[in-house]
């Protein structure tokens, strides 16, 4: 059935809750209201007591979920916008990422923090950021970002099955931007494995989240013989797929919605030169947002990567 990403995520949550009674959904407005983006719609009615409206306190949502997970539950926290995960940063960095290590593997946290992320919907301040690198840098977390409805369902179900904590970021600009065929059946897509979306021979384009669509739009406008890799998971990072491609193409750009300094785009570029410099014919170019706090929405279209910026990077990397 064709559906958009919100419906695919909703179906994943529904199937996970039907399958495992310890799975709970908790967060601000996730119950009666079904979440501000409607991802949890209907779960409150279908699973009484398991889709829980919490007090408005992000640190408490994650910290209490840590306790629930320590005592046998599988909480799926929704933080209303990724820009508000910082209120819970202490709990995420100090506890979510560390309990397995601290307890020598005795106490584990099979739980998820979901949050809509990234820009493109003319939202208010703090509603449009791309914080994936913060959470990769926490170490001890898995960090996932789907690029469309099919992946969203499979990756979310894999995250729920995963025995370790997962930060699951949902690019909200593609929540309802397009529909894809999504199987009704329960299925998972493995974490830590990138997806070679399209095969080519002259260039490797590494991307994830909503930027996959931008890359595809760029290639539709300006066809190019390129491998396109959707990372799907930022931690663990599947560099094997990236390096295999680069050994074939010799050129790479990384397209990400993050700001540039200290970004995953930078990390991937660094790892390409560390492990494949003899295969490179050109420097690796990062296409990102600018190194400023996300601007108010009147200017966001200039901040976010666009077709022109991706095109310019391709031209540059091909000019060597």
């Amino acid at each position: 059935m064709k559906m958009h990403m919100v419906a695919a995520l909703n179906q994943a949550l529904d199937q996970a809750m039907a399958k495992d009674k310890s799975v709970l959904v908790m967060g601000e407005d996730v119950g009666v209201d079904g979440g501000v983006f409607r991802v949890t719609e209907g779960l409150y009615q279908k699973y009484p007591g398991r889709s829980i409206d919490t007090p408005l306190a992000e640190s408490a949502i994650v910290g209490v979920a840590v306790g629930l997970a320590l005592n046998g539950m599988k909480p799926i926290c929704e933080i209303q916008f990724s820009g508000f995960t910082y209120q819970a940063f202490g709990q995420i960095k100090q506890h979510l990422a560390r309990f397995r290590q601290r307890s020598d593997g005795c106490m584990t946290l099979p739980m998820i923090v979901r949050a809509p992320c990234a820009g493109g919907i003319r939202a208010l301040e703090h509603h449009s950021e791309s914080p994936e690198a913060f959470y990769v840098h926490c170490q001890g977390l898995k960090v996932v970002m789907p690029s469309g409805p099919y992946d969203a369902k499979g990756l979310l179900l894999a995250s729920i099955e995963d025995p370790d904590p997962v930060m699951f970021f949902e690019p909200k600009s593609i929540y309802r931007a397009f529909k894809e065929e999504v199987p009704e059946d329960y299925y998972t897509i493995p974490l830590g494995k990138a997806n070679l979306v399209r095969e080519g021979s002259k260039l490797t384009i590494v991307t994830w989240g909503a930027m996959l669509r931008l890359v595809q739009q760029t290639l539709e406008a300006n066809p190019m013989d390129a491998d396109v890799i959707d990372m799907r998971t930022l931690a663990p990072l599947d560099m094997e797929t990236v390096l295999t491609s680069i050994k074939k193409t010799g050129r790479a750009i990384v397209v990400s919605e993050e700001t540039r300094a200290g970004s995953m785009a930078g990390d991937i570029a660094a790892r390409i030169q560390e492990d494949a410099i003899m295969h490179l014919d050109a420097p690796v170019i990062r296409v990102t947002s600018f190194d400023i706090p996300f601007p108010q929405f009147a200017l966001e279209k200039y901040h976010l990567p666009n077709v022109k910026r991706v095109q310019a990077a391709i031209a540059k990397v091909m000019s060597y």
Binding site: G63, V64, V66, G67, A69, N71, Q94
Partner: peptide
């Protein structure tokens, strides 16, 4: 639970543990 170092942060874990019970 193992020793919690960040002051006060563990209070939330106690709430979650008791809630699960």
């Amino acid at each position: 639970l193992p020793v919690a170092i960040p002051v006060g942060s563990q209070a939330l874990h106690g709430v979650g543990i008791a809630w699960a019970s």
